[in-house]
Nucleic acid binder design. Structure first.
Length: 263
DNA sequence: ATGCCGGGTGGAACCCGA
């Protein structure tokens, strides 16, 4: 049994106490973090490695940044998406991937998809270009026909049911028809949305704004996803959002999503 | 209900996120 997880921590250094606390109580085997907001030299390797994790990061000053944690060896590391789909000037650190050397090895990709707001700007165009690049890379990985988990902050609200008040997101990049169509296109390559499959529940949100008491009012959205290849989905037994973590002191605005695979 | 909060950096009437 392997527990995999994804969590946008909104600054690993500002969140370190919350992160260590959650790692100790949730005991995930493999984790993808997003929005580290730091370069490699400032990442708290010692604190996390002392809990028994191998760690690899793709860092960036101030913005973005993604990390992989694994109690098994990390092999065949990749930082960034392949550049063959354009955006050779893209210097954002938004993707990291490795083969997890578990008893049954599997591939794990951790992504932080661009937000894309406001719509009608270069930022939204960048989001869609990045999703096209992810589509091509995901398609390549699926041809390997191996267990694969693509996890992270997709910054897409797939369906109206994934928002407490969908009407308040109609002008937002996360809920645009183009964003949702690109998300579905990736899924239709052959992925299983772990939470929608075995963790489906009303209000299964993963993000709540910091203001207007969004968490207390459950004014949330589901934008952090665990997508599984058929070979991984066959082994999926559970998926849950650790929403209580969002209610703690000095929380991230995202909650962790955890899936259990019978691997 | 407009980044309202909360990170970043750097010293901003700044940047960013969703």
């Amino acid at each position: 049994m392997v527990r995999i997880a994804t969590w946008n921590v909104n600054s690993i250094n500002a969140r370190l106490d919350r992160v260590l606390e959650w790692l100790e109580e949730a005991q995930p085997d493999v984790v993808g973090f997003q929005e580290l907001k730091c370069v490699e030299e400032k990442f708290p390797f010692e604190a996390i490695e002392s809990l028994g994790y191998n760690v690899a990061i793709h860092g960036q000053k101030s913005y973005n940044g993604v990390a992989l944690l694994s109690k098994f060896p990390l092999e065949d590391l990749r930082r960034g998406l392949p550049e063959n789909e354009g955006d050779p000037t893209d210097d954002h650190s938004r993707y990291i991937e490795a083969v997890i050397g578990a008893p049954t090895p599997f591939r794990f990709g951790c992504l932080y998809l661009p937000n894309g707001n406001p719509i009608g700007t270069e930022k939204f165009a960048y989001k869609l270009r990045w999703m096209a690049r992810l589509y091509h890379h995901a398609a390549d990985l699926l041809t390997l026909e191996e267990p694969l988990a693509l996890c992270g902050d997709f910054n897409v609200i797939p369906e109206p049911e994934d928002a407490d008040k969908p009407e308040s997101w109609v002008d937002d990049a996360l809920f645009q028809p183009e964003s949702r169509a690109a998300w579905r296109a990736i899924k239709w390559l052959g992925f299983t949305d772990a939470q929608a499959t075995v963790g489906a529940e009303p209000h299964g949100y993963t993000f709540w704004d910091y203001f207007r008491n969004a968490y207390e009012r459950d004014h949330g959205i589901r934008i952090d996803h665990i997508m599984l290849s058929p070979q991984a989905a066959d082994r999926l037994t559970a998926c849950e959002v650790h929403r209580h973590v969002r209610g703690r002191e000095k929380p991230s605005d995202h909650a962790p999503v955890v899936a259990t695979l019978d691997l």
